[in-house]
């Protein structure tokens, strides 16, 4: 029964990983950029939320109304003014620039907010849960997060398949030159993809901040989990990312049954084994997205 509970919790955690990873997957799928600062952007969202709550006193559960739009706008301009320039000098430069951003962001947070860990207090929601049997609980917060993760992935999917801009983003991802010939402004579309990525990762960061406590140095480990979810699920496939997140979530909670440290190690081992056996992921998809 304890295993069944771990599986249920693992699936919830996996939803969070997937929401976190969807931005990475989108950035890679559209412009072949791996943003190494992804984890630190999520952490920055938590700290911004802490400040926003301090100023406006709105309930923590609603703070995303303020934070997510800031990141959506920031993502667009960050891409247009900053990443786009580095993309011109080759993939190594983009990697180095985003890594530099990650270190700079982490240390700025350290200087401004100190190394103390922070969390977003959502009151009674943290402890509330539905009890199914003696051993199995469905925490409200986890259910909300899983719902938000699936809804966010579905919205991104609908945007990419049903709207004109979304279809143009996919066209640019498939063949940039051809898309340009029919009038697509790839710079603008890259900006759109980056702003969606920044919005989803900010959302994931806020969820993490409500679920557990965050410090400036936690960013990289979430980047690695997110990246692992993308690779396990198969590159550029959003639903594969969800599956990859679930696999990792299960590895984390089942590993934690052995001991807590093993819980943070097992997802990495699963990731490395997948790389060794199937470098293209468990659910590869040929076309981008």
């Amino acid at each position: 029964m304890i295993y069944l509970n771990a599986i249920v919790q693992g699936l919830f955690l996996g939803g969070l990983f997937a929401l976190f990873a969807s931005g990475l997957s989108l950035m890679f799928g559209v412009m072949e950029v791996i943003n190494l600062a992804h984890g630190d952007i999520a952490v920055a969202a938590v700290y911004l939320a802490v400040s926003a709550i301090g100023v406006t006193h709105i309930p923590a559960i609603w703070v995303f109304v303020i934070v997510v739009p800031i990141f959506v706008v920031g993502g667009y301009f960050g891409q247009r003014m900053f990443l786009q320039r580095s993309m011109g000098s080759g993939p190594i430069t983009t990697l180095l620039v985003t890594f530099g951003l990650s270190i700079v962001l982490e240390n700025v947070l350290l200087e401004v907010y100190s190394a103390n860990s922070q969390s977003l207090n959502v009151g009674s929601l943290v402890s509330g849960s539905v009890q199914i049997t003696n051993q199995i609980f469905l925490p409200y917060l986890s259910m909300i997060f899983l719902g938000v993760a699936v809804a966010a992935l579905a919205l991104v999917h609908l945007f990419l398949t049903r709207t004109r801009t979304g279809r143009m983003v996919r066209a640019v991802a498939d063949d940039r030159e051809a898309a340009q010939m029919v009038g697509a402004d790839y710079r603008h579309l890259f900006g759109v993809a980056a702003s969606i990525a920044a919005g989803t990762v900010a959302l994931a960061g806020l969820a993490l901040g409500m679920y557990t406590s965050i410090s400036p140095s936690t960013g990289p480990s979430y980047l690695l989990y997110g990246f692992a979810a993308v690779v396990i699920g198969g590159l550029g496939s959003l639903w594969g990312t969800l599956a990859g997140g679930m696999v990792l979530g299960l590895a984390a909670t089942l590993g934690a049954l052995v001991d807590p440290d093993f819980g943070s190690m097992l997802p990495y081992l699963v990731f490395l084994s997948v790389l060794a056996v199937r470098p293209r992921g468990l659910f590869p998809k040929r076309a981008a997205l």
Binding site: I34, L269, A276
Partner: peptide, 23 residues
């Protein structure tokens, strides 16, 4: 292991190896 990958995948796989070693 890591030479099966290139570019960003190599970067992140090498990072994960270091994390695993630390843990």
């Amino acid at each position: 292991l890591v030479f099966r990958l290139s570019g960003a995948y190599f970067a992140i796989a090498s990072w994960v190896l270091a994390q695993v070693a630390a843990l």
